[in-house]
Design a protein around this nucleic acid. Structure first.
Length: 459
RNA sequence: GGCCUCGUGGCGGAGUGGUUACGCAGCGGAUUGCAAAUCCGUGAACCCCAGUUCGAUUCUGGGCGAGGCCUCCA
């Protein structure tokens, strides 16, 4: 078995993945807060960790990986959205959870094993907070419960900061209710018009970080193998998760490996809702195919920033055209996927998808050169193997090339032109044949003269 | 201000202490009535300066430039 190395934010270097239990490899990734539609930047972790999920399943067996990706379904923005529309928060969260599912499904993202929601874990959250209070790591204030950061001696390890630095930084607001400016909310006391739950320390709702700690403990255990999320979650979110969990668990490590994906940039600036420079899937797939979006995401290494623009997706589309053409050339029924070793090695090296795509290029050449069924079968099996791990090439070549809306009149017209051209060619009337090619080009149709006659497809 | 990341050919983008991926675009060839596709071949890069080294794009230090986190954020 190829050893898997992953860049661990905690150590700032690649470290070998050594699961605590190879029969139950555990991974937790921070999913969306469902208060409005996710943008494509939010899709990057879904896709990146989907590839890792596929690799883990391939390596340890599909039944031996437990992947949880949470849904945050209670927070300030959700409350604000619900209040604005005059509905219960569940109306908002259900709606956007569904949209999220549709979006990631269109990108070939597998469902995780678990999709825990904060509101379904209020009991666990309360118990965890109570434990932190009991053990002196948290205290009750008039507006809720706070985690007392100085109570943890090695706070800041993940993000590489320490209390003194943070206090020197002018950006932490002084809040009289907190014992220390770095303290953060575990529980926010109930406010009028806001959803709340009863708790021994007063009615309220969970703070941002505590849900992940509680859900990990409940669903995956005290210590998990991999914890992932976007780069901007390192601080404060993941740092605080560590603080809560490890203080509640007598210092037991929350996650052995912490992984963080880089951002999508838009016009060389971070894509973010607050900057307003975002695109969602629907906006992109109006022009491009979703699979091209996925491939574009994988064209750069997951930790590197990726500039998002139309050229990038156009190039990915061209690449997929080439991949599906190769697939078409070797297409046979009932061929099982085989993952090539070179691909496994690329992915095992911190999910090096650009390297994986280089491997894929080699396979495409093999496929295009394959003359007999043995070679074709081998090439097809390997192409499928790559597709299965990267989550691409899941269509038949036919489905890829012919996904334009059907227009019978137009199709009939094109068929007639192609037929006429075939006759012209048979009569060696090249002038007319070329004229028809030109007409077809204006209809965005490409004609190919193959050994078995002319075929056409929409460009 | 504190912490961190990055700077590779026309473009995208890996990687490496010496032989310098891969894709797109370009160029030459094969093939084609013409094309398309495909195959073969080919030119082209490592921000600047200093240091370590026999040798640095790769390591160290400095500089310049870009970006991120420190507040909600994938």
């Amino acid at each position: 078995m190829t050893e898997i190395f992953l860049f661990n934010t905690l150590e700032r270097k690649k470290t070998q993945l050594i699961p605590q239990n190879p029969k139950r490899v555990t991974m937790y990734v921070c999913g969306p807060t469902v208060y409005n539609r996710a943008h494509i930047g939010n899709m990057r972790p879904a896709i990146v960790f989907d590839v890792l999920f596929r690799l883990l399943r391939h390596t340890y067996g599909a039944d031996h990986v437990v992947y949880a990706r949470n849904i945050t379904d209670v927070d300030d923005k959700i409350n604000a959205a619900a209040l604005a529309e005059g509905v219960d928060i569940s109306v908002i969260t259900r709606k956007y959870t569904e949209v999220y599912h549709q979006d990631i499904q269109s990108l070939n993202v597998l469902l995780p094993n678990l999709e825990p929601r904060a509101t379904a874990h209020i009991g666990e959250i309360i118990a965890l907070i109570q434990k932190l209070i009991d053990e002196g790591h948290a205290y009750t204030a008039e507006d809720g419960v706070y985690f007392h950061v100085p109570s943890m001696k090695n706070y800041g390890r993940l993000s590489g900061r320490n209390l003194e630095d943070m206090q020197a930084g002018a950006r932490i607001e002084i809040d009289e209710k907190k014992k220390n400016p770095a303290d953060f909310a575990l529980w926010k006391a109930a406010k009028p018009n806001e959803v709340s739950w009863d708790a021994p320390f007063g009615a309220g709702r969970p703070g941002w970080h505590i849900e992940c700690s509680a859900m990990i403990e409940k669903n995956l255990g005290q210590t998990i193998d991999i914890h992932g999320g976007g780069h901007d979650l390192i601080f404060p979110h993941h740092e605080n998760e560590i603080a809560q969990s490890e203080c509640a668990h007598g210092g037991a490590t929350l996650a052995n490996i912490w992984m963080h994906n880089g951002f999508l940039n838009f016009g060389s600036e971070k894509m973010s809702k607050s900057l307003g420079n975002v695109l969602n899937i629907a906006e992109i797939t109006a022009t491009f195919k979703p699979e091209a979006v996925r491939l574009a995401m994988l064209s750069a290494h997951y930790r590197a920033p990726l500039d998002w623009n139309d050229d990038l997706i156009t190039q990915s589309t061209k690449t997929l055209d080439r991949l599906y053409r190769a697939l078409e050339n070797v297409w046979l029924d009932n061929v099982e996927a085989i993952a090539p070793q070179a691909l496994i090695e690329a992915l095992c090296d911190d999910i090096n998808t650009p390297q994986a795509l280089a491997v894929l290029s080699e396979l495409v050449k093999n496929a295009n050169k394959a003359q007999n069924d043995v070679d074709k079968k081998q090439a097809l099996a390997e192409l499928k193997g790559v597709g299965a791990l990267l989550g691409i090439l899941q269509l038949t070549p036919d489905e890829w090339f012919n996904d334009k809306p059907k227009d019978d009149d137009l199709n009939a017209r094109i068929d007639a032109l192609v037929a006429e051209r075939t006759i012209a060619r048979a009569e060696k009337n090249w002038g007319r044949a070329d004229e028809i090619r030109k007409e077809l080009a204006e209809l965005k149709v490409e004609v190919k003269d193959g050994a078995d006659g002319a075929t056409w497809r929409f460009l």
